[in-house]
Design a protein around this nucleic acid. Sequence first.
DNA 1: CTGAAAGCGCTTACAG
DNA 2: CTGAAAGCGCTTACAG
Lengths: 342, 342
Amino acid sequence: MPTLKDVASEAKVSLATASLAMRGKPGVTSATAQKVRSAAKRIGYQLNASARSLRSGRSGILVLIVPRLSIPFYNHVAEAVAYEMEKAGMQAMIQQSDLFAEHERETVGRIASTIADGIIYNSTRLDDESITALTDQRPVVMIENFAEPRTLDTVNTPSQEGMNAAVNHLVDVGCSRIGVLGRSPEDTGRASQLSSISKRTRYDAALAAIAHAGQDLEMAAWPDPVSWSIEDGRKAALELARQGLPYDGLVCMNDMMALGVLRGFHEAGVKVPRDVAVIGFDGIQEGAYNTPTLSTIAVDYRGLAQASVSLMMRRLDQPDDKFMPQSIRVGYELIKRESTAR
Amino acid sequence: MPTLKDVASEAKVSLATASLAMRGKPGVTSATAQKVRSAAKRIGYQLNASARSLRSGRSGILVLIVPRLSIPFYNHVAEAVAYEMEKAGMQAMIQQSDLFAEHERETVGRIASTIADGIIYNSTRLDDESITALTDQRPVVMIENFAEPRTLDTVNTPSQEGMNAAVNHLVDVGCSRIGVLGRSPEDTGRASQLSSISKRTRYDAALAAIAHAGQDLEMAAWPDPVSWSIEDGRKAALELARQGLPYDGLVCMNDMMALGVLRGFHEAGVKVPRDVAVIGFDGIQEGAYNTPTLSTIAVDYRGLAQASVSLMMRRLDQPDDKFMPQSIRVGYELIKRESTAR
DNA sequence: CTGAAAGCGCTTACAG
DNA sequence: CTGAAAGCGCTTACAG
C-alpha cells in the first residue's frame, strides 16, 4: 500500500508538504496542494489512521456505546447520535455493552485503550468515577445518567416532565385509577448501578405525578418487578386482567413494554382504551402502527443526539476548560393515539 | 498516560519482555509475566492501540457496516454479528452507511483508511469491484450480495427457499389468489446496485414460487413499486382494500412492510386472516406481539452471523489462501402465527 | 529466557 | 512557501 512518502515523491514535494496539503492546512500554495492531491489519487493513497493517531493523538473517531441494538430506544439513539457525529466531521463507531453478561466494564476498558477521541455513553452499569478511571482523560458524555454527584457531561431524557404529561393525559381522558408498570428488578440491592438509577428515576417520576394528581399511590404502583421488555409487558397485562383489572389507566415505563401490554390485554379480552387506557414512553416508530396505536411520550431523539455531540465537541475543542460538567434535559412530545382515545 | 516503557521499568524488565508478557506470548517465564502484569495494573497502563496497529498491521477491530440501525432487520443482524465478532476475540465496531444520501462510498473509503482488520458489509450500493478497490487488501465479507460474478465471500438469506415456503404455506391454508408486495422502486434503471439486486432477488423468488404453485402471475405481482417500509406497507394495504381486495393471500418482502399492511387492512376494515392471509419475511421480534401476530419466514440471524464471522476469521488467519470466495446460504424457519391462521 | 535496536507511517516544530 | 529531522508507542526479528 502506498504511503504518504510515495505521494510526496510522486508529487515531487517533501513529506511535510504532502502532509499539510492532504489535510488542506495553510502553508501550502493551492497549486502545490492540487498537485499533491492528484498524485495521491493517481497512486491510490489511503491515509494510515493508526499512524496519524499515534503521532497526533487524534483519530477523528467518536465511539457511542449502547447496551444493545435490538432494543428500539437504543437503536433510535444510535442512529441519531451517529448522524450528529458524522455531521460534526467525526467518524462514528457504535459498540454494544450488553452482549455478554457483566461484560461492560471490559468493553469500556478496551474502548478506552482504543483509538476513540471521545466516548458517548448510554446506560451503563458503571458510575461516573469508574468510567472516568477506565477512559482516562478522554472526554465522556453520558446519556441517561441520573446518579449524583455527576462528574461528567450528561444528557437526560425528560423523566419528570414526561411522566407528568403522561399522567395528566390519562387524567384528562377520564382515568381515575392509574397504575404504573415497570418497577425494575434491580431496584433493590444494586441500586448504585446507573441503569437501575435511571430506571428508578423514571418510575419514581411516574409515582410522583400520580400523587400530584391526587390519586392513590398504594394502588398505583405495580408491586412486582418487571423488566422493561415486550414479553414482560405482555405477562403483566395478563396478570392484571386476571386480577380483575384494578386500573383504568396504565403508564408503562417504555414503549416496548406498552406494546407487550397491549398484546396481553388483547389476549385476555380486555379492550384498550375502553376498559383501560395505556400510554408508553420513548416514541418508537412501531407504536404508530400497532393496533391499537400507542399513545406515548416521545423523546426528542434528535435533540438528545445534538446535545450529546455538541457537549462532546466542546470538550474536544477546548480541552483546557475546567468548567464543571453540564447537564442537559431534552424535550418531549405527548403523542395522543388510539390507546388513550376515549 | 503511562506507556509500556513505564511498565517495563516499573517491573525492571526490558521493553520487549514487557510487550511479550502483556500479550501472554511464549518466551517469558510465568513469574516474569506475572510481575509485568501487576506492574501494569499498578501504574494504570493502557495499551495504545494505534501504536500496536501501526507496528503490527493488526488492530483487532472488525467493522460491520449496515445501512441504518433503526430498521429491525439490520439491528438484528448488527447485534448477532457483533456478538460473534467479540466471541472470536475481536473488537466489534458498527457503522451506518445510509445516514447521508449517497454517502456510502465515502464511508467505505474512510473505513478502509481506518484501523479495521476486516469489514463485514450488509447491503450496499457498491458492487464487489468498487468495494475491493476501496478497502484495498483488507478481507471483506458481504451479507446479502446477489450480484454476479461474486468476487467476495458472501453470506445470503434464503430468498428462494424462504419464499417457496411462504407461498406454499399460503396455499396450504387455502389461498388461491396470492399477491406479492414489494417490487422495489430502484428496480428499473440502477439495477446494478447491490441492494436493489438483493431486493429483486427476493421479489423474483416469490413470483417464481407462485408460478410454481400454478397460480396466475399476471395478477400476483403488485404493479407499483413500494419501498420496504412500514408506512408504504400501510398505504399499499389501503389501496388493495380500495380495489376490492384482489388477493386472498399476500406475501410481503419483509416484516416491517407486513406490519404496515396489517395496520392498513385494520384501518380499511379488512379482516386478517379471514379476508386475506398475510405473511412476512425476516422474523423480527415485533411480529410476535402485533395483533394479529405475524406469520413470517424467520431468517437464522445467528447462523448468518456465525457464517459471516467465520468466513472473515478464516481470511484473517490464512491470508495467503487463494481459494475463490465462498457463498453461504443460511437457514430459515417458517413461523405460523395468527395472520395466516385459517 | 531476556535485552538493545530498528522501524511501522504519520505530524509537527524548526530551519531555511 | 518548502524541506530535513525527530518522535509518537508499540512489535519483531536478532543477538546474547
